[in-house]
Design a protein around this nucleic acid. Sequence first.
DNA 1: CTACGCAATTTTGTATACAATAGGATGCGT
DNA 2: ACGCATCCTATTGTATACAAAATTGCGTAG
Lengths: 231, 231
Amino acid sequence: MSRASEKAYDTIREMIISGELAPGDSLGEEALAELCQVSRTPVREALRRLEAEMLIHRTDTKRTYVADWSLDDIADVFELRAMLEGHAASRAAERIDDETLSDLRACNARIGAAVQSSPPDTERFLEGNRDFHALILETAASRRLTGLLGALIEQPVIWRTAHHYGMDELRRSHQEHEELLAAFARRDPAWAQSIMAGHIRRAFHAYADAHRGLVAIDGARRNRAKRAKKA
Amino acid sequence: MSRASEKAYDTIREMIISGELAPGDSLGEEALAELCQVSRTPVREALRRLEAEMLIHRTDTKRTYVADWSLDDIADVFELRAMLEGHAASRAAERIDDETLSDLRACNARIGAAVQSSPPDTERFLEGNRDFHALILETAASRRLTGLLGALIEQPVIWRTAHHYGMDELRRSHQEHEELLAAFARRDPAWAQSIMAGHIRRAFHAYADAHRGLVAIDGARRNRAKRAKKA
DNA sequence: CTACGCAATTTTGTATACAATAGGATGCGT
DNA sequence: ACGCATCCTATTGTATACAAAATTGCGTAG
């Protein structure tokens, strides 16, 4: 997308992810346009994209609100991701060439380095993780699959939690990636699929474990926002 | 969506599905606006939707063309549908109540009637089939899953072929639905999933078998369109 | 006091005008 | 004659003005 449109999308998205806009908040096009310093036209385009990604919700009367995510919704996303990324891993195992395999190895090596540095470099971990999964998805070579997963991986709740991973979680991820590489090296689709599905499901449980704590943090943040509004 | 936006979407979509716009054709916003009798604004919205559904394709330079579907692409769609609708069936089997079950039975009874009438009532079959699958999807109760499948089932190639189903294909579909109902009655998720995945995969092979013939028909239609353009 | 309905205001949808950008054509230089 | 640069045209992106629709609030009647 082009400049203004992208700007609106990024701005609104960031505000939702950061919690500046809380679930249930009403989103008027004009107000958003002013916030983003663009006109309503690109705002509308941004809202359509965000709606497709289910970050926002539109009532039958065309009014838009920040979407509310229940734990069930989040479980849904992880379940679908496990299935689709598992499928991607399977297809990748059938199609991968030696060059891509070594790229993938290099990528996971970077992840390992980020994990072992002290303190662990979470940013670099996340960056490597994104690259790793993206490369597998690309190797799976299915435009539809890429499209469907795109709608799932761009999710705020996931990014909000990733920063709370502990050292052990990070190490475990790195280890699972190594297993995945072994499966790819053997060109074993079923194995790759199993590892990947497990990898995602484990991530979900890590999330769910941390959830109660996060809810508390979330509550505090929202209260803060509420107080700010009053003033 | 509202009136003009919907009109543009329907018009363009219909032209693509009918083949009036052939794969690779360039789509200028202004030209489309005139065709649809609306301004460029709703046309742009329609194009975004069609892009999300992968009916059209946008180059890096923002120019839009009618998407080209290879057999691989189509195989992709069916593969993903098999996976996702299988998952939907599994979830539905866990959640279905007696009332929905009998609704589903009634729906398949209508399908059976459409198949057994002579000649088979393909329209009614397709309508019942849509309802049947939609009801299962609804019972699966996953908004994300519904969203993802929505992007897959609204595909032109599939509707274009459905009309070519033979009597035996229709009967087979009806029979597979019956098996699905049995799995639902027993609340057996794995069974339901297996039947559904097989159901979709069989449909793909029926499509692929008919494909060569369809390519010929397609070619004829395009030639006709080309001649029409010359005149 | 409540409930219903109408009107005023806010909000979204559509059209059009204007700006930016990509593609193509033409002409000049080698 | 071939290639490159520049200008012109065509197409897309953005802003704004206007129209339609919806919600809210007020007034009135039961």
